[in-house]
Design a protein around this nucleic acid. Structure first.
Lengths: 251, 251
DNA sequence: AAGTGGTCTAGACCACTGC
DNA sequence: CAGTGGTCTAGACCACTTA
């Protein structure tokens, strides 16, 4: 009878109903939601309308479609990435975090490494105070957690600085790139991290195996040595559903 | 003749073509892109297919639809938010940033203030070490830049600590909440910021006037006084297209 | 083999914007 | 008022997953 639906598109009403059901716990992480056919029958709408409703939940990161299988509730169990190790644990101790996050038994591993010498992208050249097209050593890595890719890292270093060092090799040895920079007398002394968020490009979405509608976090980390020279720029692209970034600092 | 299109859906091909045109600068920020009717004619596809292509660009944050007007190229001119003021300017100086950002003449202003006493949300109660349902002073604010809302801030403070102080008033006086906490002998000494990104809920999208497909950045800032007591939790939701977060720190 | 989501068509009506 | 994007229908074929 009634018609108390208000002036809201059908697909939004359907999405709101499903969203409420998830919030209320009637569907938990990993559970299968009603599919297109279910919604068409329940609400008497066309396929495209049911799709719009389910698409909205995916856009919001609540649900994830798996071809041929169904639409499922996503879970959010992020890695906690501490930007400032020095302060983190010592001063506070654990347990005072807003978002719980287990790193626990799960293992973060490098999936692929690629080292090349390339001309500097404009933004990186600007930060380093180089000419565009000046050569850089570029290290690209992909990190996987439990088999799922979660982080793309592209590290830029001045080619002249790192020539003929292990930094130009896939395996940089114990302590990694920063230890090798220290060997060269250019240990990083300060860092600047710039953080933003956006939707992935098609290439990034693929390399991170992202369900559609999941944003990425982009971190541009600049490393300065004691003299203030920029010795590295590292551009990272993170699956936003996989990470919480933590920064601890003093007033 | 040929059929060298590869095995890619039409709407992705159309979107890729538009994306390339934007990247190549053939469409600049604010320019109008070909609309649904244009794409239907040019590519000989149905309306829904043209819509999918344009929808993809919006999902990626490249374009923004304006009802009745057209689809336009978005621009990204973010505010630079410095997490760690103490270090930022003194040690480096400006100009070594990957993403340029002007704050310049544009003014960040508070749009609405709302103060209330409410029971603690579970996550906040946990951080503060309180019982759930313990009363908190809750301050909700919205910030606008050039008339566009960019930040929603919800600040939680222990009700007993701030009772009968200006903190319970909309206007907290010079120096704001932190100055008043200092007056009480609980000046914040340390901060923890937890940063994540996700798609906005429908309410957030509306309150921030977000075009569809734009993610938000969520910051949970915990303030500790010198004794380690949690004196404030501030949950912020930012328009990701409006902000770059910067954190400077030492190795 | 049955069911699922992914893509696509060819129509339609509406509200809104811009002139 | 003409054009735009927003919503919606009623079909269709395909690739994929699950069993």
């Amino acid at each position: 009878m009634s018609r108390e639906t208000g002036r809201q598109p059908k697909y939004q009403r359907i999405a709101a109903e499903l969203r409420a059901a998830v919030d209320a716990g009637r569907y938990g992480p990993g559970d299968r939601l009603p599919g297109e056919n279910d919604l068409m029958a329940e609400h008497g709408v066309a396929r495209m309308t049911a799709r719009q409703a389910l698409g909205l939940l995916q856009t919001e990161g609540i649900a994830e479609a798996r071809k041929g299988a169904g639409v499922f509730v996503r879970d959010f169990r992020p890695i906690r990435r501490r930007g400032i190790e020095r302060l983190a644990r010592a001063q506070w101790g654990e347990g005072r975090s807003v978002w719980s996050a287990d790193i626990g038994n799960r293992e973060l591993a490098v999936d692929s490494v690629e080292v090349a010498q390339e001309p500097a992208p404009a933004a990186v050249a600007g930060v380093m105070g180089l000419d565009e097209n000046a050569d850089l050593c570029v290290r690209r890595r992909r990190f996987v957690l439990d088999g799922k890719p979660v982080l793309l890292s592209t590290s830029y270093l001045p080619a002249d600085l790192v020539a003929d060092t292990p930094i130009t090799q896939p395996d940089t040895g114990p302590g990694g790139v920063y230890a090798r920079l220290a060997d060269l007398g250019h240990a990083p002394a300060r860092f600047r991290e710039e953080v933003r968020s956006r939707m992935p490009g098609p290439d990034e979405g693929e390399r991170l195996a992202l369900p559609s509608g999941v944003p990425v976090v982009q971190i541009a980390r600049t490393a300065f040595d004691a003299e203030g020279r920029v010795v590295e720029v590292n551009e990272m692209v993170l699956d936003s559903a996989a990470y919480v970034l933590e920064y601890d600092f003093e007033a």
